[in-house]
């Protein structure tokens, strides 16, 4: 544990930029940090698209190979860092290994930051993350007012930070302040739900009327999918000079449309059920963890207020 004074933050950023193509938060998403210190906000889009781009050239027919440098993500919230970790598991530890993801994610570095002020739409604690969850980070920052406490979470993080000079040892006062901030933030996230229970209840809810009721309101757009830190379904297309992969969403009818014209999930009901089952039942079955990190983006942005938290509580009541 070390301390970085706020005035030294630009130095840390510049220093990280010597080793990594460094991205930081902006209002709309993570973007390369140019010449200013990023404002540590939570962007509308999670960082998944940095390692798993919405539009990604897999290979080109003209022989040109897209190349990239190691990416550093600065100012990643605990939910988003965990989201990347879940994606990493799916892309590299399941039956198949996705080289495109693996190359990008594993050559990168993730610098997380705790959430001193969780929002009412945050429910990361349901998934064992919490406002100061460090899982999935290499380095972790806590804002204690006059500076940040920096903690190395992984060996990669330790190696990196041990050669950065301007760090101070934290005082007892700093640590006490950190404990207060953490306690205050954690106290704001109450009334959790156990994802294991959700998984079990969903086992019995395939034919539940819940899906039809939700489908009445759902617009069947992909807003929730595309803003989700863990949704990862994609399509592959051939373009003029390249084969590309692009994000896809189970809420689109085209997602399961077969060449014959048959669609096994013709109704919004079927597609919504797929989304929920995949996240909270199938993924749990495979990895003992749900495909949700409680970031609240789908809750905040859904145009018709389909609130996932409400749905989860309903599932617990009905199952």
């Amino acid at each position: 544990m070390r301390k970085l004074l706020k005035k030294d933050l630009p130095r840390l950023i510049e220093w990280l930029k010597t080793s990594y193509l460094l991205y930081g938060p902006t209002e709309y998403g993570f973007a390369p940090i140019a010449d200013h210190t990023p404002e540590l906000i939570t962007p509308i889009r999670p960082p998944k698209g940095i390692f798993f781009p919405q539009y990604q050239v897999l290979f080109r027919y003209d022989g040109k190979v897209p190349k990239s440098k190691g990416i550093g993500l600065f100012g990643v919230r605990p939910c988003d860092a965990k989201g990347l970790l879940i994606l990493n598991r799916i892309f590299t530890q399941g039956p198949y290994r996705d080289n495109y993801w693996q190359d990008q994610y594993q050559s990168g570095i993730i610098i997380g930051i705790g959430c001193n002020q969780p929002q009412p739409t945050c429910f990361c604690h349901w998934f064992g993350i919490g406002p100061f969850g460090k899982e999935g980070c290499d380095l972790f920052l806590t804002d204690i007012g006059d500076g940040f406490l920096i903690e190395a979470v992984s060996k990669k993080g330790e190696d990196l930070i041990s050669s950065f000079d301007p760090l101070l040892p934290p005082t007892d006062q700093d640590l006490k302040r950190r404990d207060e901030i953490v306690a205050r933030a954690e106290a704001q996230l109450k009334d959790g739900i156990d994802p294991k229970l959700i998984k079990e209840r969903l086992d019995n809810l395939w034919e539940s009327p819940i899906w039809g009721e939700l489908a009445e309101r759902c617009l069947s757009c992909a807003l929730c999918t595309y803003l989700c830190p863990t949704c990862h379904c994609f399509d592959i297309q051939d373009e003029e000079k390249a084969r590309v992969r692009i994000w896809d969403s189970c809420l689109f009818p085209l997602f399961t449309q077969e060449a014959s014209g048959h669609n096994p999930r013709p109704e919004i009901r079927d597609r919504l059920r797929q989304r929920i089952m995949h996240k909270f039942n199938y993924l749990y079955l495979q990895y003992k963890e749900a495909g949700c990190v409680g970031c609240g983006r789908c809750v905040i942005f859904c145009p018709v207020n389909l609130d996932l938290r409400e749905l989860m509580r309903r599932i617990l009541d009905e199952g």
Binding site: Q54, C221, A222, T225, Y226, L227, P253, P303, V304
Partner: peptide
């Protein structure tokens, strides 16, 4: 981000198959 929230909330985007699909 091509999420089509605009299209799907639009009263007049009711084509069975949208041209983008």
């Amino acid at each position: 981000i091509r999420c089509y929230a605009c299209r799907n909330s639009c009263p007049f985007c009711y084509c069975d198959v949208c041209f983008v699909d």
